[in-house]
């Protein structure tokens, strides 16, 4: 099932299937947010934004609207 990253639940692990490249910053790709890589939601701030992720071994936080541009598949 393909969903977007914003709907990932705490602790869940997924694989990135595609990213809407025009709508996310290059920096995010450079930090390893690329199709094929694993992503886990570690924690969210109040009101579930921003999201604290482990992507490909990098720990980073992004906002929900950016997460919506990233498609994932649950494992």
């Amino acid at each position: 099932m393909i969903i977007n990253l914003a709907s990932l639940k705490k602790g869940q692990i997924a694989i990135i299937t595609s990213v809407v490249t025009d709508k996310i910053p290059l920096k995010l790709l450079e930090m390893g947010c690329l199709p094929g890589n694993e992503v886990q939601l570690l924690q969210t701030a109040p009101f579930s934004c921003p999201m604290y992720l482990n992507v490909n071994g990098s720990h980073l936080a992004i906002r929900k609207e950016v997460a919506e541009q990233i498609e994932i598949e649950l494992v």
Binding site: I24, P25, K27, L28, M31, P50, Y52, S58, H59, L60, A61, I62, R63, E65, V66
Partner: peptide
């Protein structure tokens, strides 16, 4: 556009 990316270091 808001491109908020923060590294959470060790």
């Amino acid at each position: 556009k808001s491109f908020f990316v923060v590294e959470m270091p060790n």
